[in-house]
Nucleic acid binder design. Structure first.
Lengths: 197, 197, 197, 197
DNA sequence: CATGAATGAGTCTTCATTCAT
DNA sequence: CATGAATGAAGACTCATTCAT
């Protein structure tokens, strides 16, 4: 359980810029050189600040990673909420298709980063805020599945998330870039999973 | 790329026991305390040997992990080959069901261990032998899909593996133990994925 | 081939002092307890800093030694260049005498240290900078010998350097401190070596 | 001060062969891979025996090296004694030439080995037996120099030994193989050193 | 006696974190 | 606030030596 609350709220513009630079540096290192190469001195250097400054904004190395992941999950929740809006009144299959599409939006924005963060996520124990976001994401899917009368909606939501995440990450690994096609294939599997009978 | 060849071939009974104890200790730590807590001193202590002994059998810490993973992949290949035998003459859906069942055999033997190793696998660059095993596993699936005239069989094999692995790992995370049920759900998704049209 | 470039350029006064303290500590240990007793923990402790600090300034243990040796060779080159200036217009024997005197200047400054470093030098593969300094030293002698029409000047330069170095080190071992006398004896041998016929 | 007396006198032929094999292995490693690569496991393996056996014959790693050096010094003493016989009745210069020739005999037999051992010798504290041999060698030269009325014969003997050893080692380093020529050059220097006036 | 498995003290090196300036 | 020098605990790995078989 990682303490990620900022030590100080970066209210000023410069502070926010520094904070963002640190996070960007960490993400870039994570993607290009892997989690083993990720260390605070390198993050600070890459961000163009001193280690001391880094520790002004983040209480620990883990906190930086945790916040990166939290941001990703927050974006994903937003993407899914937008998807739900768009799917108002559609049938199950269409809704599923739209939500899967939404799920892949952060891959579309920066696939290697999404992949790296999802992998890092499995290594860390999450902070409360991120857990809450993940719960919200899960709940959103559960609600929709419930609406369509799907059996064991919690388990189904988990299965679908795992299926989608697994396939998306494998596609990134394989170097695929056409995420519409990936979404289509994931949808085929999801639809099959949900098919009655 | 990790060098995993043993430094010393454990011919004597005591040697083999020691070697196995080291691997078991590493696996136990990996499962119970995670990859960050995995260090050579702890492995040796847990195995009841000295660090020196550990290094008689393994050239590096990574090599221990690599061999654990290689063993798992080797078992999985065997499981799948057995599955293919059993599926001789069956239709696609049945064959898929049988192979997915086989895929979950190592989860059935020790689910937390399977989960931990699959996650660790994503962190390491594999040695040649393990790459070969993974290629063999992939090829086996590709061959079967080709036999049934599935489109883009290589990509389909990758998608199905990712889908199955993702769902299985999520189930383990959630604490499920009925892997027949998990297999049934994975099969639903896989069958949907493969459905023509 | 040892990488000796400092990790951090010691610009501040404190840094330079720390860096120098580390080198001094290493030299002192080398002289008093020999190369086998030389280890990074002891160097750091002797220098009054932590190991971490040592590694801020030197990328490896070898690099410390390498830089000590490089410094010595750089001083020696300067000594010899000064000697060459002083010998302008002298005959061969006088020139030789002056250069041998110059060669012993670093023994005059700190004989045990010179001895210890020259011995350590034979153990290490040198970095490029030190090789260049040694080549420059060699070249300086070759040029002078060529000027006086000495046969096979490269080989003669090597022979004379070996002769001088060997005798000087033996003198230090024996506890001699009058390096003018040592220089006189070396000069006798060198003059004999160069005598035509 | 290294304890080198054998733990057991190798009276039997097999024992002597084992003992020699260990020494040969150590020497070969020293020459081909340097003193840093010299370790007991490698020596034993190279010699075709087990570590345990190695420790039957030598009380420590250092003892092996020490005995190798002792052997070399013993041979050198023999060479010099033979040289003194041959030089009976000759004048100083001829005697010097003969003795220098004798000094290079172990280089003629195996130059890289001689070089490696002489260098290793400088690193070790010698055992009593080797010290005695070196003292005998020194004394032999002192006696001859005294016979010819050389001033400060002990210091001269030391100077000549250093000069000869230094030049010979430099020649080996440079890859020279014609030790008659090396001897001639050393003799020129030695003769110059000894020249009255 | 020979073997080689086992030992564990000792070394090098890294890196998250602190704090004097 | 920013800096970056300093810290030192921790971890990977080596190798001389011992001892049960």
């Amino acid at each position: 359980m990682v303490q990620i609350s900022l030590r100080k709220q970066p209210v000023q513009a410069r502070s926010q810029a520094t904070c963002a630079a640190i996070k960007e540096a960490a993400a870039r290192i994570l993607v290009t050189r892997g989690i083993e190469a990720l260390n605070t001195n390198l993050i600070a250097e890459t961000a163009g600040v001193s280690v001391g400054t880094l520790y002004q904004y983040f209480p620990s190395k883990q906190a930086i990673l945790a916040e990166l992941i939290r941001d990703m999950r927050a974006e994903m929740l937003t993407d899914l909420q937008r998807g739900r809006q768009a799917a108002q009144g559609c049938d199950l299959n269409t809704t599923v298709r739209i939500l899967i599409d939404a799920t892949l939006d952060h891959h579309r924005r920066d696939a290697p980063r999404a992949e790296a963060l999802e992998h890092a996520e499995a290594t860390l124990r999450m902070d409360g805020e991120t857990e809450r976001l993940k719960a919200d994401i899960h709940l959103l899917v559960v609600e929709i599945l419930t609406l369509f009368g799907v059996d064991a909606p919690a388990r189904a939501a988990r299965d679908l998330a795992a299926l989608a995440s697994g396939m998306a990450r494998a596609a990134v690994w394989a170097g695929e870039t056409d995420f519409d096609d990936v979404a289509a294939r994931i949808t085929r599997a999801a639809t099959g999973y949900l098919r009655p009978n």
